[in-house]
Design a protein around this nucleic acid. Structure first.
Length: 377
RNA sequence: GCGGGUGUCGUACAACGGUUAGUAUAGAAGCCUGUGGAGCUUCGGAAGAGGGUUCGACUCCCUUCACCCGCC
């Protein structure tokens, strides 16, 4: 099942709150979706994710297809059962991972993408149909059409060609999805591409909207340069159906989230808080000095924290900040102790969950602008 | 005690009688937006001591000190 209900629209911006309903429960939007690449949000248990307050995570089709394999996941009862996450779940289509494979490990033609596994260099092919079949076997509630991701600096002709391909793949993805999804268990996001060209983005937005996807994702936005990314998303949104959920793929810088929530985006997935946690970046709230200039974070590994008794963030009420000092986290990172990953990830994700909760509350009280001003000016 | 060997960044190793003594790792600082417990960038850091040979010694010689191995 799938349903999206808009709860509240802001008065002086496009920001809104809503609820995405799936077979595995609800997602209150705007929401940040942590990435669980290999069917795990690295270093955390599902119980911890729930405790932090997340209602959905996103897994990667590319990784799970290569290992342990979609058939195995299906045999184990589906992704949710396999990873003990009994809540809404997304899978990415594999398009981006294939795109980001290094030094020509992949080759794209109109049919699909041929690529070599980063694990054992074995050869594989992804087509829109194959991506749908794999995502069906994995069994996530919310899945993505197979698209071609492109670098933002690609020239017009390249982008145009790529967009035509993505559109053809969108049609094929949807057709295969409908064939497989007779029981309506899953919902499919179409993906808008078009690189840095507003004209192509517009064309893509209109085309993808016309196909009848359950929801829309916007792809190939990389956050920087900010002005350009903002213009692209803003322009794209003008041509998308207002009543459908909109997901911004791969975006997760704090400043960007405020920007795009204000424009009307509903969900975001990003590796930033988790990946950065693993190398010692700690997010801090504005009350503690977090601001766009420092990207709301600092590095706990710097030697000045060696004997700092304070919590990671003095204005954070998460489990980590209530119980551990910066000195302890600093030590764990220096000693490469496993707990460092868990504690830093827990804190960073808590930071995001709380921020999103505050964003939702502010929208419903018509105070999003004030909250945004407090965070990003 | 005798014989042999080795002394080079914190650690492990390298080269060479002649520009600025190299590499790895550790250290310091920074980067990461649909993969990355990985990776990348930058910086700091060394000839055991003393003497001799030589235009010039980390390199060759001597003394001394330290450590290692073997023997009694």
């Amino acid at each position: 099942m799938f349903n999206f209900r808009i709860k509240h629209k802001a008065q002086n911006s496009q920001a809104r709150t809503g609820i995405i309903s799936t077979s595995h429960g609800k997602i209150n939007t705007p929401a940040f979706i942590p990435v669980a690449t290999q069917a795990t949000v690295k270093a955390l248990t599902p119980i911890q994710l729930e405790e932090i307050g997340f209602e959905a995570v996103l897994c990667n089709t590319y990784h799970l297809y290569l290992r342990p394999g979609a058939a195995l996941v299906k045999k184990m009862g589906g992704l949710q059962k396999f990873m003990a996450w009994n809540k809404p779940l997304f899978t990415d289509s594999g398009g981006f991972q294939v795109f980001s494979l290094k030094n020509g490990l992949c080759e794209v033609n109109d049919d699909g993408v041929t690529f070599k596994s980063h694990i054992d260099a074995s050869k594989h092919i992804f087509t829109p149909e194959k991506s749908m079949q794999i995502q069906r076997k994995l069994g996530a509630d919310l899945i993505f059409a197979f698209d071609q991701c492109l670098a933002l600096n690609a020239d017009y002709e390249t982008t145009k060609k790529s967009l035509e391909r993505t559109h053809a793949w969108a049609v094929r993805s949807l057709r295969e999805f409908k064939r497989l999804n007779k029981d309506k268990k899953q919902a499919l996001y179409g993906i808008v591409q078009g690189g840095r060209f507003l004209e192509l983005r517009q064309k893509s937005a209109k085309f993808i909207s016309s196909l009848g996807f359950d929801a829309i994702g916007i792809g190939s936005i990389f956050g920087d340069p900010k002005d350009e990314s903002r213009k692209i998303v803003e322009h794209t949104l003008k041509f998308l159906p207002p009543g459908k959920p909109k997901h911004l793929l791969g975006i997760g810088a704090v400043e960007d989230i405020f920007t795009y929530v204000e424009m009307g985006m509903d969900t975001f997935d990003c590796v930033l808080p988790t990946r950065l946690a693993r190398v010692g970046y700690i997010y801090i709230r504005p009350e503690s000095g977090g601001k766009p200039e420092n990207k709301f974070r600092y590095r706990i590994t710097t030697s000045k924290f060696k004997s700092d008794k304070k919590p990671l963030d003095g204005h954070c009420d998460c489990y980590v900040c209530q119980n551990f000092s910066r000195a302890y986290l600093h030590h764990l990172f220096k000693a490469e102790e496993l707990l460092s990953y868990t504690l830093a990830t827990y804190h960073n994700l808590y930071f995001f969950a709380r921020m999103m909760r505050e964003i939702r509350e502010s929208i419903e009280k018509d105070k999003f602008r004030e909250l945004k001003r407090k965070w990003v000016k």
